[in-house]
């Protein structure tokens, strides 16, 4: 088990939780990982841009394109 990637999924959930609530944040990360054909615990930094883009598309109906993009950028910034 790679502790760094466990915490990456968790770190993304933490970014999403203020907006989505914990349950929806966890569900979102799981759902988007499954779309990418990986498990949350397998999530790596190279996967971040794709995951962020998928999450952007998922939340666009709630936030509009500008803010959905900002949210996805905050996810990508987890890498730095």
């Amino acid at each position: 088990m790679n502790n760094m990637t466990d915490s990456l999924a968790r770190r993304i959930e933490i970014v999403l939780t203020p907006l989505l609530g914990e349950l929806m944040a966890i569900t979102t990360v799981k759902l988007q990982c499954s779309k990418m054909g990986i498990k949350p615990e397998e999530l790596g930094y190279p996967d971040l841009p794709t995951l962020a883009k998928n999450i952007e598309r998922a939340v666009i109906i709630f936030l509009g394109s500008d803010k959905a993009k900002e949210l996805s950028q905050s996810i990508v910034r987890i890498n730095s």
């Binding site: 907006l19 989505l20 609530g21 349950l23 929806m24 936030l63």
Partner: peptide, 8 residues
């Protein structure tokens, strides 16, 4: 379904 989701 997601009672604590502010987004909803």
């Amino acid at each position: 379904l997601y009672k604590k989701a502010w987004i909803l």
